[in-house]
């Protein structure tokens, strides 16, 4: 049996990750990762040729289990993972005095350490030969700018971007590694937030091009993974409707 060439997307069960999956499914066979199996199945049903895509249902906070289950999946299905999109992420907004160390570690594990662990496995010859070509991390504009209560989240995204640059240099020229830094897009995670008319009006004023859509982020991911971006590595691409250049907000 020939190996199947696939692209792995973590956090594919909702929001931006789901949209990335749907968009990439037009041209790629995917491994869809998520914690919530019913919603992961929903994502797969939305994809082109749903039957072609594999599911990887695991908790990224559990490093040891992640390791074993990814290796098992790749071996049993004879996968050649050529693309990796790390979109899984937790957001918890808490002022410093309420931050609890265990919860902060868990957030760092999911948002950052899991990306490191997956990339480590995917660049091991024994596991994935030299199949890996392109990596895109979904970071956040919070990696570059501060906001109240965002300490741990910002740190996790900052770690991801710093790691991205180091890996771009270390893994060149075989693997390209980049980040996309989105601003706020309408997803189920932000829907509740945006249903507050006051907050929604404030956000609209902050974003010169308005609030974004998940497909805006998906377009950037698709571009960076594609051969059109063959000379782009180690970069942060901000996709935020102008939010971070708006100092009047």
């Amino acid at each position: 049996m020939d190996s199947q060439i696939v692209t792995l997307i973590t956090g594919a069960s909702s929001g931006v990750g789901r949209r990335i999956a749907v968009q990439l499914s037009q041209t790629r066979r995917l491994v869809l990762h998520g914690r919530d199996e019913p919603r992961l199945l929903e994502t797969r049903a939305l994809c082109e040729r749903p039957d072609e895509h594999l599911l990887w249902n695991t908790d990224l906070a559990d490093g040891a289990q992640l390791d074993a289950s990814l290796v098992q999946l790749i071996e049993s299905q004879q996968l050649a993972v050529e693309g990796f999109v790390h979109c899984a992420g937790m957001l918890s907004i808490q002022p410093l005095r309420l931050v609890e160390l265990g919860a902060a570690r868990r957030l760092m594990d999911v948002n950052f350490m899991s990306a490191l662990e997956i990339l480590r496995l995917l660049t091991r010859k024994k596991v994935n030969a030299k199949h890996l070509r392109g990596v895109v991390f979904i970071s956040s504009t919070a990696s570059r700018f501060g906001a109240r209560g965002f300490g741990v989240y910002s740190a996790s995204k900052g770690a991801l971007d710093a790691f991205m640059r180091a890996m771009a240099v270390e893994l060149a020229p075989d693997v390209r590694v980049n980040s996309v830094l989105p601003g706020a897009v309408t997803t189920r995670m932000t829907e509740a937030m945006l249903s507050d008319p006051q907050l929604s009006a404030r956000m609209a004023a902050e974003y010169p091009l308005g609030i974004g859509r998940p497909e805006d982020v998906a377009c950037a991911v698709e571009y960076l993974l594609s051969d059109r971006a063959r000379w782009i590595t180690g970069q942060e691409l901000v996709v935020d409707g102008g939010r971070t250049v708006n100092i009047t907000a």
């Binding site: 640059r165 010169p208 377009c219 590595t233 409707g241 250049v245």
Partner: peptide
């Protein structure tokens, strides 16, 4: 990519295309 609708929510951004020159 930036001209077309693929960049419809991108403004004020600098996209560096440099084969990793500025990453190290």
């Amino acid at each position: 990519f930036l001209l077309a609708d693929t960049g419809r929510w991108i403004t004020g951004s600098v996209l560096t295309v440099d084969g990793g020159y500025t990453a190290h």
